[in-house]
Design a binder for these strands. Structure first.
Lengths: 136, 136
DNA sequence: ATGGCTGCAAATAGTTTGCAATGAG
DNA sequence: CTCATTGCAAACTATTTGCAGCCAT
């Protein structure tokens, strides 16, 4: 995505495209990714960008609330942000911590429970935990 | 579960049944529950037990590692512990934060992806997010 | 006595917030 | 000029750890 496209993307979601936000968007939206705030900050610093930790967090929260990215709860210890906002599921390598996308058609439910009275399904989070197969 | 049964349960999992551990086990294992460390501590204090925060955390980690309880990643902000270690899924009321069990037979997969080379499935975490149905 | 368990408090890790300085329009 | 955004540091929340004291063997 070009700088201009990124800027338009932000504007389209009512987000002022400032320098920092564009840098963060560039890292996250370059391709489908699962990144923690810390990783994004590290990446930005490595790229020589001048961005503070607070701005990274504020921006990530802003992006989530505007639907540009999606927060994930995979390991309790930190928040992950998924730049793929389309419906999809995840493989989670428990040992390495890596996340991989699983496309919707890869999973089919032949049965799902009825939500309780007065409630409706807002979304389905599916995480398939993986471990190395015992050698042999 | 009686005190004795609890003690035997702990011993069976190579856990010395100390006073504090029995109190914590009593709270958690009384019935299927989803509790945070903070909630457990509060409950214990309310019951007049003399247990420190550190011991609660240490004990919860010990119990998890020994398979008496299972840690859940539902909301990024804190860890939840599920005293039901049987395979099952969850409803998550996004607004209220409440967790409810979904029995395995309530969900059927007619299709699941092949794990990547050299990996095997260690478990499947399914969280069905619920919201209040718009009135009408 | 010995070794594991506990409590306290301090240390960590991740994230949020207050506020003055900055910067885009 | 004005007002949103940023950076820094301090505040906060959840959790872990170091260590001295305690308890049951």
């Amino acid at each position: 995505m070009t700088q201009t496209e990124l800027a338009e993307h932000l504007s389209a979601h009512d987000i002022l495209p400032t320098a920092q936000r564009l840098r963060i968007a560039a890292v996250l939206l370059a391709s489908p990714q699962h990144l923690s705030a810390e990783q994004i900050l590290a990446q930005l610093k490595a790229d020589g960008a001048r961005v503070s930790k607070a701005t990274v967090y504020n921006t990530l929260n802003l992006f989530s609330s505007r639907g540009l990215i999606r927060p994930l709860s995979v390991d309790g210890t930190r928040a992950w942000f998924d730049s793929n906002v389309e419906a999809h599921y995840h493989f989670h390598d428990v040992e390495g911590g890596t996340l991989t996308d699983v496309a919707v058609p890869e999973v089919q439910f032949s049965r799902l429970p009825e939500p309780p009275e007065g409630m409706e399904v807002a979304g389905i989070d599916l995480v398939i935990r993986l471990r190395r197969r015992p050698c042999g």
